[in-house]
Write a protein that binds this DNA or RNA. Sequence first.
DNA 1: CCGTATCCACATCGATACTG
DNA 2: CAGTATCGATGTGGATACGG
Lengths: 178, 178
Amino acid sequence: MTASAQQSTPHFNAFAASCPSRRLLDTIGDKWVSLLIVALGLRGPLRYSQLTSQIEGVSQKMLTQSLRRMERDGLVTRTLTPSMPVRVDYELTLLGQSLLAVMNQLKEWAELHMSQVDAARAAYDRTTRGLEPPLPSRRPTATATGADTRISARRAHRSRSLWWSTGYHGRVSAVGLA
Amino acid sequence: MTASAQQSTPHFNAFAASCPSRRLLDTIGDKWVSLLIVALGLRGPLRYSQLTSQIEGVSQKMLTQSLRRMERDGLVTRTLTPSMPVRVDYELTLLGQSLLAVMNQLKEWAELHMSQVDAARAAYDRTTRGLEPPLPSRRPTATATGADTRISARRAHRSRSLWWSTGYHGRVSAVGLA
DNA sequence: CCGTATCCACATCGATACTG
DNA sequence: CAGTATCGATGTGGATACGG
């Protein structure tokens, strides 16, 4: 990873659209997956029902789906104990544990910086309000969906010698020097 | 909510369903956001067009949307330079930089462990194949959506004295002792 | 208890068209 | 260049019903 970065290992690169690691990035970035990793890392193996209560608001579907994917990816093991009430425990594998550190940091960052983010949002909304009207009604247009307003006479290309104008009227947050 | 379990800091807890930090966790776990953070952290400020090419496969819509959200959350700044071709640069804020370390680890973990995950998947699919039929056609059902097969006579509860049986016929990956 | 299957409202996202 | 707006296919996820 020192210089130009491409000879040490058969490297994966998440910046590449086709690289499998990008999908993996998506998977491990999932809300439920990250919470599950942290929960399982925090207190040993956990039963399905314990996870249900530990991770508030998760539905059976999402819980099972996430656990299944994690099991398939080798992040957790699933152990069935055929006791009287059937019991199933989930536990992090070594691979899963290697993710734990990162996930903890992710969750902690979110919790630690929540207030700063909130402040930033408030400031942003204060300076930018008006751009996003409350949109009270769906669409103030006539009852019939304006089907003809769509096309509109295509005006012939009027002198595009401007190429791209400097007179920018778009959204502005900060302006630099030309 | 007020009484037990917290007074040290006005703590956020992502395990709680209603905690705002959970949504934040969702946001920063987003594929595009994480790639953007890493890209911007890697080489200074970047222009919109540079991000387009740097992060392969991202659409205008997702790029703009992600950048906008990140700007609102105080993770990046947006600087407009009214030069001849209009130019817009995005740069990490201090808050954004504090996320960089975690994001780098996340992306690196994905790239470093991709092969292990692949192996785990292959192993899983080998032991579990048959559970997921190739589903060749969409749905072999008749043209009309089978509307009556839905209900089916609800059978009266037959002796549930078993409560929950031990004779588990479900999916088994590993079995523990009773 | 530990799931699976289905329905369906809603969010996501790519493609496309257009604009300052 | 750097967006915005809209459409439509697809995905996501909760609610519900049911089964070993």
